[in-house]
């Protein structure tokens, strides 16, 4: 079942008198439950593609349909709600709210949804904290956690609302190789457990082995699309 359908996607940035074509003509379909890796060198357009899929940025041309919704037609409030209910994010660096501890960070999106009882929130958060292996650190604030632990909290937070899609922009970029691999392992595991579509970008070819599908982007175009 197709969960994301991208057709003729273009993204241009004005830069002085010239225009930078970050994405030239992207056509892509992503199935539910996929574990998709978008790879490419720096500046190839993978972050821009993720931002548009995540409704963080808007396309210059083309269409992006998530579920049944064409996102270019949505207003700011609808887009925010779409992000809250359908999409989870794992960023490279600025991942967590510094003044909340690990557990509070994970429950943050659930509290924004305002549709769960405190008991439901508690159970869901505890389950995910345990699954990402941070039970002992749940009361620690981000400043008291290592980079890998922070990314685990971010993964738990991205999954806590049971979104259709989790987007991770270079989730291992700031981590050492061992920690990075453990994070990727965790994402793979969560993809299997939660049946959530994972899309992550990376410029590290070694990451490919964790993905079931790899999309290679070069100069704003899909250069290669293959099952791993």
């Amino acid at each position: 079942m197709t969960i994301i359908k991208i057709s003729g996607l273009k993204k241009n940035y004005p830069l002085g008198n010239t225009t930078v074509h970050a994405l030239r003509e992207i056509d892509l379909e992503i199935e539910k439950g996929d574990l998709l890796s978008i790879i490419g060198p720096s500046g190839s357009g993978k972050t821009t593609l993720l931002n548009i899929i995540g409704c963080i940025d808007r396309a210059s041309e083309g269409s992006v349909i998530i579920g049944q919704k064409e996102i270019s037609t949505l207003n700011d409030r609808e887009i925010t709600d779409l992000r809250l209910h359908k999409i989870g994010f794992i960023f490279q660096t600025f991942n967590l709210i510094p003044v909340l501890n690990a557990q509070e960070n994970v429950e943050f999106p659930l509290l924004l949804m305002k549709k769960h009882t405190s008991g439901e929130v508690q159970r869901r958060v505890e389950k995910l904290i345990e699954e990402v292996g941070l039970k002992e650190y749940r009361k620690h604030r981000p400043a008291e956690l290592s980079g890998g632990q922070r990314q685990r909290v971010a993964i738990a937070r991205a999954l806590v609302t049971s979104p259709d899609i989790v987007l991770a922009d270079e989730p291992t970029a700031n981590l050492d190789s061992v920690t990075g691999e453990s994070i990727l392992e965790l994402m793979k595991k969560m993809n299997e457990i939660e049946k959530t579509t994972f899309i992550f970008s990376t410029h590290d070819p070694n990451v490919m082995k964790y993905a079931r599908k790899v999309v290679k982007i070069k100069d704003g175009l899909i250069a290669e699309e293959a099952a791993s």
Binding site: R77, L84, R157
Partner: peptide, 12 residues
């Protein structure tokens, strides 16, 4: 960064 991240995860 903090506010942007909150907005990204669904804060209006």
């Amino acid at each position: 960064s903090e506010i942007g991240m909150m907005r990204a995860v669904g804060a209006r």
